[in-house]
Design a protein around this nucleic acid. Structure first.
Length: 181
DNA sequence: CTATTGATGTTCT
DNA sequence: GAACATCAATAGA
């Protein structure tokens, strides 16, 4: 996994990230759900140009863009071409299960540990402090998918503008999704 | 299972 | 003041 993987169109990266393994400080799992956001995309934070909070989206590819959602939750993205990124929405937990359970507030079942961007960041202890850091260096680690991943695509979730673009990717039938695809 | 609601930081109008 | 790439708790079918 190197920078050239990310320096492409966000939609292509989102599809190819399904099945990859992401760890933060040795805790994490396999990516089962992503969404792509592009520069010329009304639903994207980069649509209206750089601001203080979204600066990382215009930084180098392969770095993290982390933003606060609804004032309460953190969400993790992988930066692609300038102004575009892939939102990591759900993982299948594989490493550090006990650590994740301890970090999540209310006793969440394993299948819900990392189901949804806010939950995922809570389980992996991802916060704004990691915004702009490289995903290819500690505390992050990222490994390519092992074998054929079989990603299905669908419509993005939880947005009000440009909500009909089929830029959500997920492992069909996985029990670890924030919502079935 | 679905529907509704409250919590709350950053940006924009 | 309003919108928002969300979640958990609650009430009802």
């Amino acid at each position: 996994m190197d920078v050239s993987f990310f320096a492409r169109d966000a939609v292509a990266v989102a599809a190819d990230l399904i099945g990859a393994r992401i760890l933060v400080d040795g805790v994490g799992g396999l990516i089962v759900e992503t969404e792509a956001y592009r520069r010329d995309d009304e639903a994207s934070h980069s649509y209206r140009g750089p601001t203080r909070a979204n600066a990382a989206m215009f930084g180098p590819p392969g770095h993290a863009y982390i933003y606060r959602s609804y004032g309460l939750h953190w969400c993790l993205n992988a930066v692609c071409e300038p102004g575009s990124a892939v939102l990591i929405r759900a993982l299948e937990p594989t490493e550090g299960l006990e650590t994740m359970v301890a970090r999540r507030r209310s006793g969440a079942a394993t299948r819900r540990l990392c189901a949804g961007p806010g939950n995922l960041c809570q389980a992996l202890a991802v916060t704004g402090e990691l915004d702009g850091r490289s995903l290819l260096q500690p505390p992050f680690s990222l490994d390519p998918p092992a074998g054929a991943a079989g990603a299905a695509c669908g419509v993005r979730i939880g947005i009000s503008k440009a909500a009909d673009r089929p830029w959500r990717f997920a492992v069909k039938g996985s029990p670890y999704l924030s919502k079935p695809i």
